[in-house]
Design a protein around this nucleic acid. Structure first.
Lengths: 256, 256
DNA sequence: GTAGGCGTCCCGCTGACCGGTACGGTGATC
DNA sequence: GATCACCGTACCGGTCAGCGGGACGCCTAC
């Protein structure tokens, strides 16, 4: 987890610490729970949380605090993710319509994948991914594509840190993972077979930056083993990702 | 605009002021531009922006600052919007697949609609809405539905404040708007005919809270006048919204 | 009754924050 | 190539916003 724990000697540091104490599946957190998670003194937590409410980053409910709509709005304005999302939507729609399986758009952040979008129908496979949520790179198709098309240093960093086991099929051997990344570079797609959740398979392709060797994002299709064959989707996933790549290239977006 | 301008005497206030200086279509803002928009002293802006970068709410690029991916992630964790989005997605997909026109999910915030989701294909009508963006309630179908199913006080507030003209068809007469809201209550759907943008028509239905008289959100379909007839979609939009309503009711979500 | 957990508030100390000021770089204008 | 305007960055002493230990009142459980 390459998360420096934020400077607790500044108001701002305390504030983001409180905000980040919320995980994807927390609806509402009590003051006491926030104190427990952040390690901040109770009085301080109370005051800062109050200030956050004043500034419309938190909502106060009778059960406790929750992240507010104002924060959602702000987050949606993050230019990279938002414009990616807007440009990608038509391509994601196409994939969904052809397969009626769950379609993801994700970017890499450190050793994790962050899902920017997730679309699916009523019968979608129950997957552990959430929009705005994280998953380790090494156990997802999106993650493996993103890693394969990353700087070698990043790859080494991941390969040399322990690979968490999520299911019996999760790849925890660095050597095996490295070989797979090589294959991904050749094929332009990555697969995942019940490595993050039992019963799920997945295929992903990279959205490449202008140079063509670095990935900005990745697109994937996920389905249950019972009815979904990832190999059958190689062409359309690759096409969608490439279409998005060239669309993105036509706009200015990136930067250091 | 019921936006209290945030307390500029606190660090937190300054920080959110800087963050909110970004609009939906700003990719990157220079320090000087931030100074101009926020009215804060240059030195202060420089320092606080630097702190925001440290805390991963802003990114530093060679061109200036931009809202970071960390902020996107945080915003996606806002429970109300996120769970709404997740539950709604299958219904929105259905609507898109049936019509191949742009589908929106929106909530009300003050006198504005905030778009939580927007999905469309390659040939989507060019509409002024953006995911995470705002539009006035009185000139959109989503807005009119949300307003019709709101507390009377809110309605009065909107009706008694000036109604901004966006196109020649925008309804700027409070009396007319009020009558339309009555019709919306009866029909359970609202229409918009080139009131927010020339060439666009729209139909929306409310996602109702358990009581059945207050709207949590609304779903809409938007299309160009040339090929899209909103009246033909009454049934499916209403069905989608009702389906989502009952799904939401089955979960705990709301609160004061 | 009492014990533990909760949210709220008080209040005196102090160091984080403030912002006027100054400096170096860069590009346009004459 | 000199001048000027505008930019981002850095400094630094004064002071007040922020701090958090502690106390209080309210619950529910035992």
């Amino acid at each position: 987890m390459p998360h420096e724990p934020a400077d607790l000697d500044t108001v701002l540091g305390k504030a983001v610490t409180i905000l980040r104490a919320f995980t994807v599946d927390d609806q509402v957190l009590s003051l006491a729970e926030l104190v427990r998670r952040t390690g901040l003194p109770k009085a301080t937590t109370h005051r800062v949380a109050g200030d956050l409410v004043t500034n419309r980053l938190l909502d106060r409910t009778n059960l406790g605090y929750r992240l507010s709509g104002g924060l959602f709005e702000l987050g949606m304005r993050a230019s990279v993710e938002r414009s990616l999302l807007e440009l990608a939507m038509p391509f994601l729609q196409d994939l969904y319509e052809r397969t009626h399986e769950t379609v993801h758009l994700g970017v890499r952040e450190g050793h994790d994948v962050v899902y920017v979008a997730k679309i699916g129908g009523h019968r979608q496979a129950k997957s552990p991914s959430r929009p705005g949520g994280r998953m380790p790179v090494h156990c997802t198709a999106i993650g493996k594509v993103l890693l394969a098309f990353s700087d070698p240093e990043v790859q080494q960093e991941v390969l040399s840190s322990p690979l968490e086991r999520r299911t019996p099929h999760t790849i925890v051997a660095p050597g095996l993972l490295e070989r797979q990344l090589g294959a991904v570079l050749e094929n332009g797609v990555a697969f995942e077979r019940e490595e993050s959740a039992i019963g799920l398979q997945c295929i992903a392709a990279p959205v490449l930056a202008e140079g063509g060797d670095k990935a900005l994002a990745a697109i994937s299709i996920t389905g249950p083993v019972s009815r979904f064959r990832p190999e059958a989707q190689v062409t359309i996933v690759r096409a969608a990702a490439q279409g998005l790549s060239s669309l993105v290239s036509r706009r200015r977006s990136l930067s250091s």
